[in-house]
Simulated assay, not measured.
Amino acid sequence: MLDGGKKRGPENVTLILDGVSVRQRGETWLDDIRLELPNGLTTVVGPMTAGKTTLMRVAAGLLTPDSGRVVVNGKDLTGISVRKRSVAFVYQQFINYPSLTVYENIASPLRLDQRFRREDIDRRVREVAELMGIAGLLGRRPAELSGGQQQRTAIARALARPVDVLLLDEPLANLDFKLREQLRADLKTMFADAQGVVLYSTADPNEALTFAAPTVVLGEGRVQHSGDVADMYAHPPTLAVAATLSDPPLNLLPGVVRDGRIECLGTSFPAPRAQATGHNVMLGIRPHQVTIGRNGPGALELPAEIRLAEVTGSATFLHLLLKGERHLVAHLAGTQLFTPGESTVAYVEPAHIFVFDEAGGRLLATSAAEVDLHG
């Protein structure tokens, strides 16, 4: 972590969640979480009900798991109060002390640490404030700040005191698009040389891809996969991982293997590998891979009715109704005008289609790699 010239403890920190489970009101919120998180930034991505906040609270010591251990630097901290841990937590909400100035908000955790002298505190507050772009706001109170400035203050307070574990629970979720983009870039630079474990949770797959850090995909309280986020995006091992990392949402269409081809809604394309005839599959298609009015050789042709065109200025999201009341969304560049109710044809190159086993959701083939159905 940023240490302001004060070296304390090991520079390389490890956080281990060993078989962590949490059950509340008869429901399982975390199910046998097993993670070893190294020094530096790790991103946790998943939908709203994935269990991200619960995982963060367990890692912080705010919630004791029903089973499993939380180990930091080889020391079992399960059940140890958060006050006795070297941890800082940044919440989604802008949590600052309303009666204190920005300066005093940032200084507050340092004043609780007897190792910091007055001059150390002043230097550290100004250093972190400069880093977060709020050096000119130190005399203001939170009510006088914008939402982005309040969140920068909250993050600066968490960064002020060196800790082994820094937890950020969707810290940019309540900010507008421009502020999110700016602060995300600042945080990526800031955490590049972090000393300590930085765990950052988000529901936005684009945020995880932007950070380009080791990533844990969480869903329904379980670790669905972990590893390099770019590799997971290109070769999602399961349908659940592909869906989590797709924004706009992944298009899903049913298919069946017959005589070496995959049939889908009255059209077909060659099966990527030899697969058993009659095997049911699910086709995953990212919206930006759908084209209208143009196609390459062998493209999947999907006759459709135009239902809605959402124009954002830089892009057009075209909602289509296919055969069998199936829906498809195309992400088209720029402003394009369409008339609802008109007929059109959507095209998808077979190389851009993910093929998943319908029963288990396992990946069978991608545009760049193939997996043996019987492997």
Rank of each mutant, 00 (worst) to 15 (best):
G9I: 06
N12C: 04
V13E: 00
L17K: 03
S21M: 08
R23A: 14
R23L: 14
E27I: 03
R34T: 10
L37Q: 00
L37V: 08
T42D: 02
P47Y: 07
G51M: 00
L55Q: 00
L55F: 03
D66E: 14
V72Y: 01
T78W: 06
I80G: 04
S81Y: 01
K84T: 03
S86E: 01
V90S: 05
Q92E: 10
N96K: 01
N96Y: 00
P98T: 01
L100F: 11
A107V: 03
S108V: 03
L112I: 08
L112A: 15
E127T: 09
I134V: 06
A135M: 08
R140L: 15
A143G: 04
G148M: 05
Q151S: 07
Q151H: 12
R161W: 13
L167H: 00
E170T: 02
L175I: 06
D186A: 14
D186R: 15
L187G: 03
Q195N: 13
G196D: 05
L199D: 04
Y200L: 13
A213F: 11
P214C: 09
V223K: 02
Q224M: 11
S226D: 00
V229M: 09
L239T: 05
L239I: 05
S246A: 15
P249E: 12
L253I: 08
R258Y: 08
T277I: 09
A299I: 08
I306Y: 12
V311Q: 07
G313N: 11
T316Q: 06
V329Y: 12
E342R: 11
V348I: 15
E349Q: 13
V355D: 14
D357G: 09
A368S: 13
D372T: 04
L373H: 10
H374K: 15
H374A: 14
G375W: 14
